[in-house]
Simulated scan of single mutants.
Amino acid sequence: MSTANTFRIEVSQSVLDDLQERLQKTRWTDEPADAGWNYGTNPAYLRELVTYWQKIYDWRRHEAMLNTLPHFKTEIDGTGIHFIHVKGKGPNPRPLLLTHGWPDSFYRFYKAIPMLTDPAGQSFDVIIPSLPGFGFSDKVALNTDQVAALWAKLMTDVLGYEQYVAAGGDIGAIVTKSLANQQPDRVSAIHLTDVGYPTGQEDWATMSAPEQEFGRYIQQWWYTEGAYNMIQSTKPQTLGYGLNDSPVGLAAWILEKFYSWSDNGGNIETCFTKDELLTNIMIYWVSQTINTSVRSYLENARAAWSGTPSPSAQYVKAATGVSVFPAEAPMPVEWAQRMANVQRFHKMPKGGHFAALEVPEDWTGELRSFFYSL
């Protein structure tokens, strides 16, 4: 058994002072008239948020809140991994591994933790690692199959769980699929909010009409919304210089995704408070991990181009629950069944890409309903 040491988030005051100085010296761009969110991040909202960041937001308060959770660090195959491990109530909580995506962090799940650990009859031991290259894990960019191999050792060698369930969305969904295929005897079931998307390499003749429609939707989405993925999958280092140097640039890059991918009806604060948006941004800023987080896209692209069969791309035989939230891509059940052994498929009434943060009651209810129905 490997060991894990307790960990506290302790950001030096010099980092916070430097941040304030950078915010004060922001060189703002010109702005199109009535830009709104039509050109990217809304200039008026960004200025409003930055003013709040300077004058009201209190990192120390949020740092203290985060430190009420049990944080740990361990080293697996030479990579330092940060994780949260909260034991569930009751006699037999089920181990549940949650994996976040980009551009969020372990913070995605902070509202869900008490909902998953508290009900004594249907509770979970909740394990939430920070992806390598994100937050307080080591600054190294790995592909999803490499991450899944680390998670396998985290759950068995470090924490000693013989069997467990896992869930995730975005990058976390792909890691979870890979983990289920790498450890089929240990991962008893998984829950996903997406299962991967059509790439254009599929045999079109074998796809149902809803799958073909979904494929066309995804193709159009890449043309209109996928520029971030293209640059992060090809030239991430060029992007990283600006995002690591400018807090306003970092905020703009992340905010646009929180707006575009959430079920907010045109007002981002119907889904997230300013404090939540800024705390997630701050985790990237104080850890200086935005560069490695975006570089992970290139590592995944290289793995895909290598021609080597990937566990994350293979059909998942483990029992799988899928919840589709309305602000996500409109995945049909036929596509989900093509990718995994779907035992539960549910279209949700509200929520989006960051469902655990947007609608935590609905998201945790989906996990509990699925995992405790098996």
Rank of each mutant, 00 (worst) to 15 (best):
S2K: 14
A4D: 01
A4V: 02
N5L: 09
F7K: 08
F7E: 00
R8P: 07
E10S: 14
S12A: 14
S14K: 13
V15C: 00
D17V: 05
D17W: 08
D18Q: 05
D18G: 03
L23Y: 06
T26L: 02
W28D: 10
P32F: 01
P32K: 03
G36D: 12
G36N: 01
N38P: 08
Y39G: 07
T41S: 07
L49T: 09
V50N: 05
T51C: 11
W53V: 07
Q54R: 15
H62S: 08
H62C: 10
E63A: 10
N67H: 00
L69W: 08
L69V: 10
F72I: 12
I76G: 02
G78E: 00
H85G: 02
H85M: 05
G88M: 06
G90N: 02
R94D: 09
L98M: 12
G101E: 02
S105N: 13
Y107Q: 10
L116A: 02
L116W: 03
D118H: 13
D118I: 06
A120R: 14
G121M: 14
V126Y: 06
I128E: 07
L131C: 01
L131K: 12
K139N: 14
D145W: 02
V147P: 11
V147R: 06
A148Q: 09
A149R: 15
W151C: 11
V158P: 10
L159C: 00
G160D: 03
Q163A: 08
V165H: 02
D170W: 01
I174M: 15
V175Q: 01
T176H: 02
K177T: 13
K177V: 11
N181S: 06
R186V: 03
V187E: 00
S188Y: 00
I190R: 00
H191T: 10
D194S: 13
Y197G: 03
P198D: 00
P198S: 03
T199R: 13
M207L: 15
P210Q: 10
P210H: 08
E213M: 13
G215I: 12
R216V: 14
I218Y: 06
E225M: 05
M230A: 15
I231P: 04
S233Y: 09
T238Q: 00
Y241N: 09
G242T: 05
N244F: 00
D245F: 00
S246W: 01
L250C: 05
E256L: 04
Y259S: 05
N264W: 04
G266I: 07
I268M: 10
E276G: 10
N280C: 10
I281T: 15
I283R: 08
Y284K: 01
S287T: 15
Q288W: 07
T289D: 05
I290C: 06
V294H: 08
V294I: 15
S296G: 11
S306H: 10
T308I: 15
P309H: 09
S310T: 14
Y315I: 11
T320I: 03
Q337R: 15
M339E: 15
A340G: 11
H346N: 15
M348F: 04
G352C: 02
G352E: 07
A356Y: 06
L357N: 13
V359S: 12
T364I: 13
L367Q: 09
R368F: 11
F370P: 12
